[in-house]
Amino acid sequence: MNKFDLEWINLTSGVNVRKCMRCGKCSATCPSYDEMEYHPHQFVYMVEKGNIEPLLGSDSLYKCLTCFACVERCPRGVEPAKVVEAVRLAAVRKQGGNHLTPDQIPAMLDDDLPQQAIVTAFRKYTK
């Protein structure tokens, strides 16, 4: 993982991983915890340390349900699901595997769903 990729992940996630106080509430609340090799708190910590390579190769990226429980409950507003999503996006981009074109998006929008959840779902299921 080079410096550019790390900056890119921080930029696309819009998350300041330095806000994390290592309480572990994200992993405590995560319903996919047992399925994941790297848990939400580890995502945040590893991205902060620049240790992204293992995350890019892990299927933990696709085990995250994007249920946003960690985002909702994080006391510091770190938003771990967005970090997971940014790493996932980095992995997908690396393979050149975009599954969605921009013109398809407007028809899929729904006010009740977090926009990120829709995007994530389509990335995972519309191959």
Binding site: R22, C23, G24, K25, C26, S27, A69, R73
Partner: peptide, 21 residues
């Protein structure tokens, strides 16, 4: 670690889901 979820159960017990970091 932090407690993420506290769920009262029908048998009167409470399921506490938490992290052991």
């Amino acid at each position: 670690g932090m407690v993420g979820k506290v769920m009262p159960r029908s048998d009167g017990k409470i399921d506490v889901q938490a992290s052991d970091l």
